[in-house]
Design a protein around this nucleic acid. Structure first.
Lengths: 233, 233
DNA sequence: ACAAAAGTGTTGTTCCTACACCCATGA
DNA sequence: TCATGGGTGTAGGAACAACACTTTTGT
C-alpha cells in the first residue's frame, strides 16, 4: 500500500545515546547492525518514527526495546539531517540521550535480533553513519550539562556515597577535585539527604545520601544555582 | 510529478526565532500568515526543507528571505514533532534561534508576500500552530545560555558601552545588577577590549568596548568560565 | 550651575583553595 | 596492627555584595 505525495519527503528516525556508569567508567550502549547499510558496524540504537507517534515516545520505545529500561533521564539532544548522512536517501534523525543507572537497571546485554554491547568512551569502535559525530555531541552536552544541572545523580544508584559522587564528576569532567572542598560545597547546597551508613565494607563505612529533588526544586524557585567546578589538579 | 513511498512519511520544516534588541526591549520577529491554516495569525518565519538542503542551510535561507540578515548568531533550538501540531498532517519542525543586532542590521520590516513585525516579548499576539510553545522554549534557552556563554554581545552593536551591556543582561534575565560589581566582574574577565570614548552625548562620555573573541577562546582553553549572575534586587 | 550618566573607593562577608590530619572498619 | 577509604580543621586569599562618592560632559 504505497503512499504518494506531491513533493519528495525525507524519512525521520530517532537515535538514542544511552550512557551508563560501570564502576567508575562511563560507557555507552551500541548495537551491531545486522543489515545493510553498514552491516557489521556498530551504531546507536534507533529506528523509524511511526506516523502517529511523538518523537520522544519513539525514542523511549527504542530505548525500551533495546535495553528494557524505562523511566530514566531522557532528553532531546539535536537533530541531524545532512543530505548524504544515510546512503539509503534523505534521512533526518532526532537524537536523544539517556542516563541510566546500571547498578539498579540490569540492562539486558542483547535484545531483538541485534547484538548489543557497552563500550567505554575511550575504546569506541568505528561507528556507522554519522553516529560518531552524534555521540561526540552527546558527550559534549553531558559534560556541559552536568556542571549546571543535577543530572549526574541519574547515573548513580538511588543511595550513594559522596565519594561515588565525586568520582562521577571526575570521570565525566576529566579532572581531580579536592575531597574536602567537594564535600563542603555539595553539602552546603542542601539538596542531599543523609541516610544510613554503608555496611560490610573493609574500611570506615561512608554515609549514604539521596538526591532530594523536592528540595532542589524548592531552592530553584528562589534563584539557587547548582554549579560544580573542576579546579584542583 | 508525484513521489511514492512504501511507508508514510512526515513533512519537515524549519522555523526561526529571531531575537533583536530594540533600545532596551527584547523583541522577536513574527510574520502574519497569508494562507490557511491559521490565515491572519502571527507565526514564526519558516518553511519546508528542500530535499538536498542541510537543515541549518534551510534555516539560514528562511532567515535571509524574511529579514535580509546574514551572518548572525544562529543555533538549533529543538525539534517539535507531535502528531497533530499541524492540521495539514504530520509535520516535524526543526526550530533554530538567531540573535541579530538591530542597530547594525537594518532588518527590512516586511518581505515576500507576508507582513512581518517585531514584537516585544510581553506584548505577543496569539501564535499559530504550537509556535507559542516553541517561542517559550527559545526564551528559556536564551535566558539559560546567556549566563554561561558570551552570546549576549550578538545583540549589541560591535562597539558598546558597559551600561548597554548591563542593561542587556537586566533585560534578558529580568533583574537589577549592581553597577559597580557588574563592571568589576566583566572587566576582570579580560575578554573586552577598551576602545575610544563615545562622542556627543549629553553627559560624561562612556568608553566603548568590543568583545574580544580571540581572547575569549584563548582563555577557554585553560578552563576559564564565563558566568553572569543576577544577584542584586 | 545643573542634570544625567560614567566611573571609582572601600568595607565586611562569604566562598574557594590547599594541605594536614584524625577516624572507623575488616583482615 | 595495618591498609583502606571516610571524614574534619583551619588559614590565607580571592571573589562577592552593598553603599556612597567623584568625574565629565552638554545645556
Amino acid at each position: 500500500m504505497p503512499y504518494t505525495y506531491e513533493y519528495p519527503r525525507p524519512s525521520v528516525t530517532v537515535d538514542c545515546i544511552i550512557f551508563g556508569l560501570d564502576g567508575s567508567a562511563l560507557k555507552v550502549l551500541l548495537i551491531e547492525r545486522g543489515l545493510e547499510p553498514f552491516k557489521g558496524h556498530w551504531a546507536l540504537p534507533g529506528g523509524f518514527v511511526d506516523m502517529d507517534e511523538n518523537l520522544e515516545t519513539a525514542a523511549i520505545r527504542e530505548l525500551e526495546e533495546e535495553t528494557g529500561v524505562t523511566d530514566v533521564f531522557f532528553e532531546q539532544l539535536y537533530t541531524f539531517g545532512n543530505p548524504g548522512r544515510d546512503p539509503r536517501g534523505r534521512v533526518i534523525t532526532v537524537a536523544y540521550y539517556a542516563l541510566v543507572n546500571l547498578s539498579e537497571h540490569p540492562v539486558r546485554a542483547s535484545s531483538d535480533a541485534d547484538n548489543a554491547e557497552w563500550f567505554k568512551l575511550d575504546e569506541l569502535p568505528p561507528l556507522a553513519f554519522d553516529h560518531g559525530k552524534v555521540l561526540n555531541m552527546a558527550i559534549d552536552r553531558l559534560k556541559g550539562k552536568v556542571r549546571y544541572q543535577p543530572i549526574g545523580f541519574e547515573l548513580l544508584p538511588e543511595k550513594f556515597t559522596l565519594s561515588q559522587l565525586q568520582s562521577l564528576y571526575e570521570t565525566i569532567l576529566g579532572g581531580k577535585v579536592n575531597k574536602r572542598n567537594f564535600r563542603t560545597k555539595i553539602l552546603k547546597m542542601g539538596i542531599l539527604k543523609q541516610l544510613e551508613r554503608q555496611e560490610d565494607v573493609p574500611h570506615r563505612p561512608a554515609y549514604l545520601y539521596r538526591f532530594d529533588k523536592a528540595q532542589y526544586e524548592e531552592k530553584m524557585k528562589s534563584g539557587f544555582n547548582f554549579e560544580i567546578n573542576m579546579s584542583a589538579k
